[in-house]
Design a binder for these strands. Structure first.
Lengths: 205, 205, 205, 205
DNA sequence: GATGAATGAGGATTCATTCAT
DNA sequence: AATGAATGAATCCTCATTCAT
């Protein structure tokens, strides 16, 4: 197994750096978003990144590894930042609002990344299983703990299963993002944060 | 002169018939669910359907048309049945519960179809756009009208945008289905209908 | 595993038929002889056979399988014919002469096949092992039995190991063929049969 | 201005030295023997030699040049040593025995070199032609002269063509070496020297 | 209508070689 | 002299689609 350059330590989630590795990842996000994973040609990614085709294989095992890496590094950064934001917040309602806001702000900032997240990362059952095992599970756990905390504080209703609520919140957010990338109207995704939080907290009634 | 046999009129949504066309659609659902759309080979679908490769092209324009047809015919049957179920129901809360139950029951009944619905139909932005334009829009409209009706009756809170609520409900249901197909545990999807309805109706607080 | 058309039963060793399978094998012999196995492009074989690239994969598992098949079918035919020729011959010296003649006549008749046999089939240790296990072993066994018969008849010296003699005869013949394909002079390979037999039978002294 | 360092004069045939050039040649013999010439990667040779990939190109024109060099330098050493061994020997039978012994001892001593010699050096017609023109021809000439000497002394039969006998002896030896490297049994190649000589000298009868 | 043998465009990947350091 | 990251040409194989039967 050929050694390869180690991933750079501090630019997680942004891919904005100028190392070849970062340029490849960023180019891949754009090309995947444009054409879809299966229709994306490695040559296109290379061209978009300004490197030779073969260079991609110095940094990644192949096309699929590029996609997985995008997801892994993006998710890691996403979760780290969310934890930081939650650090000083104690009221369960506020914690839910922060999580909701973070989700919509982060994806609303980068449409190509959102497309990859909502569409390309889900192109097969095998791939979805892979991802839902680790990273998505971590995210759902964070949401679940917020709910549990709210329930133990007596702020949230206790007859709802926390894991179920976590999935529901994720489902709503997920649909908002998908709807946004498919929408022909231009609007700020993050604008919907309050509405989502209101619905989740107060219900329909 | 018609290029191909017209679709039969009355077996929509089931694919259980024994015409070649139906057998192809059913086989395609299974093969797409098994391997994913891109990895599914036309030959495999033909073999599973018990027809020759070329026969598929007598009934469909190609592989993609098969997938689109699955979606179209499935969705049409789905919506027709939902409308029937809603026919005698008047209370907005009950109407929501019926819609939620229908969603989870229908997909919970056929895992392969659920996989195609949750995974394969979303494999590209172009495809998602196509579908969300018409059929998904119809479904969201039905949900929206239920919400509007509830609001005009004074049963539902009026400060929530009906379209937004419709998308949220869809998002929750969607996540429940996805979570179900990815789950290693065996459980009945429809069991979650009440929990979903409770959350939607009463909120977290 | 896709079924593939069964090999035709009666034209073993010649490849002169006009089925696609035979045309591919014959074309492969020529292209391998011309450029060497590793430098031979599948496209070239297809073009030489007058079929599309993909057609080769209907009949063979790949480039390597084509080479193996050439060897297998050629050798089978070779051994069958040798057995027939030996059928009516009883004197050990004559049997040796027939075997020697058969070897040189068969390869001397088809230079491209001789090149494949002497060069391309030996391009790797793994490949040589594969081939020497079965087919070459069969050939050596035939030669060995001729020697054993001669020894038991009291015609051949008994202090030589029959397997060793078989290998020696094979080695001499092999070198004559190789030398012939490398030679710039044009001569009939089969002309050397008597000389080889003389040397083998009478030795240098 | 010379493009590369001149080959060192005195370590011919051994490659055991510790100059980079020698280490590369020795590593190449091992890697070629292991994987075959075409499957051998330059990177592997470099790693085995403990040098950088690019360094190989300071000493050789490329992968093929490495293989040719191995052959050239090995053969030169082989022939020089054989000449020395023959220096004091006069009887034709003994001279033949010495040549046979030298062949089997030299290759029997280094299996990797034997593999390269029997397999890798013969991977293409073009390559075989190249080699048979010069070095192999020299070797055959040596053997031929031994035979001619024996004939003029009246020790060997005169009705055999000396060049033909030389090729035959070479063919037998070649087959013994090939058989040895393919054999699963462990045995000393040189043990067969007497048997070969016996057969060559006395024939089957 | 049905068949399935045949097609051939298309693309991920490899690896010998280069050259700036 | 030595390095090894980068290059990019080269090719085997896949598989959706066609069409003669």
């Amino acid at each position: 197994m050929p050694r390869r350059p180690a991933p750079p330590p501090h630019d997680i989630g942004s891919f904005r750096g100028t190392t070849k590795r970062e340029r490849i990842l960023r180019a891949a996000v754009d090309v995947f978003a444009q054409n879809g994973y299966f229709n994306a040609k490695v040559t296109e990614i290379a061209k978009a990144a300004g490197v030779a085709d073969g260079t991609i294989y110095l940094y990644f095992d192949g096309k699929e590894d590029v996609l997985i890496t995008i997801f892994r590094e993006y998710t890691r950064g996403y979760l780290e930042q969310l934890e930081k934001k939650l650090a000083g917040i104690n009221r369960p309602e506020d914690r839910i609002r922060v999580a909701i806001g973070h989700h919509l702000e982060t994806l609303g900032r980068d449409r190509a990344l959102a497309v990859v997240s909502q569409v390309e990362l889900r192109h097969s059952l095998k791939f979805m299983s892979l991802l839902s095992q680790q990273e998505v599970a971590d995210y759902l756990n964070m949401l679940r703990k917020i709910v549990e905390h709210g329930q133990s504080e007596g702020v949230f209703r206790r007859n709802l299963h926390p894991q179920f609520v976590a999935k529901s919140v994720f489902g709503i957010l997920d649909e908002m993002v998908t709807s946004w990338i498919l929408s022909e109207k231009e609007y700020e995704l993050a604008e919907q944060a309050d509405q989502v939080a209101d619905l989740v907290l107060a219900g329909l009634l």
